[in-house]
Amino acid sequence: MARREPGSALLQKNASARVLFITGALLFPSFLLQQDIAIRAMQIMLFLLLNVLSGRKIRFLQYLVVSAGIVVFNLVIPTGRVLVSPLGLAVTEGALKSGLLKATAMTGLIALSQFSIRAELRFPGRVGGLIGRSLFYFERIMGGRRKINRKDIIGSVDALLLEVQGAGPMQEGEENDPDRTTPVGLAILLVSLVASWGAYAFTIVHPHPIWGG
């Protein structure tokens, strides 16, 4: 199978899947340990920016709907003082903070994960090899997806599976695992790490949350 050319987005061209994954793994604790909702929101903005630089499409509406849903469900159980009571529903401070913390955790981790995980990421070991082999067959099936006929889904899917399976197993060297991290890519990721961990250090040195905590 031919090697896939890197995309045109900045981080697609300048950072390998492995380096992006390591960056994501290092950013992960700095985000989850952060209890200040305002700083968490800034971290999410950083992750969204990294998504843009990675060429990922950002689904703002989905993020908003998910966040709103989580906050509303958390407001069902009131805790703390009542802030406002629109339409008879008491919005309490504790429930609102709890909802916002969970909503930011959910959306932030999705944003973090989406820029740092690429399909061409390969893991070491036997399980890693198995995942690589599975992704290899997946790309073959995807390559033939246009042969699926809506009028005969079962028949056409069956024919496609027979065809892909008949093409034989993966050969050595057919995996697509490019390593192309450049100083530019590394610099962007290092700045992101310093910003995210720096924000966490700030909340330790300055333990008065902007909001939340």
Binding site: L130, I131, R133, S134, L135, F136, Y137, F138, R140, I141, M142, R145, A159, L161, L162, E163, V164, Q165, G166, A167, G168, P169, M170
Partner: peptide
């Protein structure tokens, strides 16, 4: 279209990987 009467995925790990690939295709 290549149609073979016998299965050409020789090892059991290939079969597992192939099944995993179908799951991924449907996930996509």
């Amino acid at each position: 279209m290549a149609r073979k009467s016998t299965i050409s995925l020789t090892s059991r790990m290939d079969l597992v990987a192939f099944m995993g690939a179908i799951c991924l295709f449907l996930s996509a």
